[in-house]
């Protein structure tokens, strides 16, 4: 097969996630019931988003240390696919919230923090669109991207932990402690997270390659 090993691995892990995620045993929890399985899919979107935005940050820093429009392109595409994954995470979370917390949107710090972070990245795309010169655009948006990433970490990973949250792993508790995730679920959860991160990176890879082809055909 003429394809990278990690892409094939991602495909296998996605199928494993779907089969084991639906057929594996899960703890019997009140209110959540079978919906606990959403953990394998909903949380996967956030892991994918975080991984892509981390990739975006790396390429922004790379651009600032050595200006190269390909780094800028990679940073931009990772940010936009991460944004897409974030929207999917938000939508799946809203559906899940409606059936467990009773409302599509609660004033949970994690939800509001996520909304702010998504808006911060939306501003990144607006900022990019407002500049004509590619070098200026690349430099300014790279600096902004670092700011957006830090803001996102503070709003999603730090602040919800300091206050009470409906999400597990918040309100001072470490995420995915032994009470949130049992041994059986871990066997599906970790491969699932790798699978969704791999999926995000795969789409990013194809997007970047198409954009590079576009650049080389136009020049």
């Amino acid at each position: 097969m003429n394809i990278s090993w990690w892409k094939l691995g991602t495909a296998v892990l996605i199928i494993y996630t779907l089969v084991a995620g639906l057929m594996g045993t899960v703890p019997r929890l009140v209110v959540l019931n079978e919906t606990i399985r959403n953990l394998y899919y909903h949380v996967g979107m956030w892991f994918s988003m975080l991984a892509l935005w981390t990739g975006s940050l790396v390429f922004s820093i790379k651009y600032l240390s050595k200006p190269d429009l390909i780094s800028d392109l990679k940073a931009h595409k990772a940010a936009s696919i991460g944004f897409y994954m974030g929207i999917l995470g938000l939508l799946t979370g809203m559906l899940w919230a409606q059936f467990t917390w009773g409302r599509f949107w609660t004033n949970d710090p994690k939800l509001n923090g996520t909304a702010i972070s998504l808006l911060a990245y939306l501003a990144y795309f607006v900022l990019r669109g407002s500049m004509e010169d590619p070098m200026t655009r690349a430099r300014i948006s790279a600096v902004y991207n670092i700011f957006a990433f830090v803001l996102m970490i503070v709003f999603i990973q730090v602040l919800p932990r300091l206050t009470d949250s409906l999400h597990p792993g918040n309100g001072g508790n470490p995420a995915f402690g032994e009470y949130d995730l049992d041994r059986q679920m871990r066997l599906v959860f970790y491969p699932a997270m790798i699978a969704w991160i791999g999926m995000g990176y795969w789409i990013w890879d194809i997007r970047c390659r198409i954009e590079k082809l576009k650049i080389s055909t136009s020049s």
């Binding site: 097969m1 003429n2 094939l8 495909a11 779907l18 795969w202 890879d205």
Partner: peptide
Amino acid sequence: FAGLLVYMIRLDRKVK
């Protein structure tokens, strides 16, 4: 999903 993943692989090879 298998169908979608096969499509992803085909897309990847077309770009290649």
